[in-house]
């Protein structure tokens, strides 16, 4: 029980100091410095067994760390590649959004065409064609073309746009162009576009409200019409 019963190892304090120093290198991942300190003494005694054990442990730790770092680097490269791919996909998605001109039927018979992005002659031709076809297919009464997102068009493109709005009327529907901003207004006046037959409103909200008001009136008129008929009977 007494301490004296247990065999003791005595060791020079410098060697102990060396081991402590070595381990402090290991703690900051400097495994080579650590190992060279641990191997510095040439003594072969019981304490050197501990030093050897530490050496083995530290070497393995160093290898494991290096392996981990390699894996991390690979992971980072993979992540970067993934990011780049995602970016490409996002760019293509944006392109698709712009290329496809969505025509939304907001109410039965009311079409809305929100235009965003760069409008060149090609897109203008496609959009107008699609709109006219959809009006016929859906037997729409009204088409709202919202160009809030567009600041600039070439004069010929703008001209074509307005011609389309007038063509809508020829198909028996009404066309409202909403969100004309100062840039486009300037272009239109500059080329002296004839805006008869085309209603323009400040915003998409105004256009939708106008539609609601007009259908309400229509309902009221119809109601009073029926009421008159009934009283006549």
């Amino acid at each position: 029980m007494a301490q004296t019963d247990v065999p003791h190892v005595s060791v020079a304090s410098e060697r102990l100091q060396l081991v402590i120093e070595a381990l402090s290198y290991a703690s900051v991942d400097e495994f080579d410095s650590c190992l060279s300190l641990l191997q510095r003494s040439n003594e072969k005694d019981e304490f050197s067994e501990l030093e050897t054990a530490f050496s083995i442990f530290v070497r393995e730790l160093g290898e494991a760390k290096a392996e981990l770092n390699r894996a991390l680097t690979q992971q980072e490269a993979a992540n970067r590649e993934l990011e780049a791919k995602l970016e490409t996909i996002e760019m293509q998605q944006a392109a698709i959004r712009e290329l496809s001109t969505p025509i939304i039927e907001v109410w039965a018979g009311v079409l809305c065409l929100p235009v965003v992005g760069v409008v060149d002659s090609q897109r203008s031709a496609e959009m107008t064609e699609t709109l006219l076809e959809t009006i016929v297919a859906k037997q729409a009464r009204m088409a709202i073309v919202d160009i809030t997102g567009i600041d600039v068009m070439d004069t010929k493109t703008a001209d074509h746009f307005i011609k389309m709005a007038r063509a809508v009327r020829l198909l028996g529907a009404e066309c409202i162009v909403s969100g004309i901003n100062p840039g486009i207004a300037q272009t239109l006046t500059h080329i002296g576009v004839d805006l008869t037959g085309v209603r323009t409103l400040r915003s998409l909200r105004d256009a939708l409200q106008l539609y609601l008001r007009e259908t309400e009136q229509l309902v009221v008129q119809q109601k009073s019409h029926f009421a008159r008929r009934e009283s006549e009977i």
Partner: peptide, 18 residues
Amino acid sequence: LILRRGGLGTGLGAVARL
């Protein structure tokens, strides 16, 4: 043909204008 050919024939004109 203009509607069916896709494009108004005004692209290069726009380039020259802008």
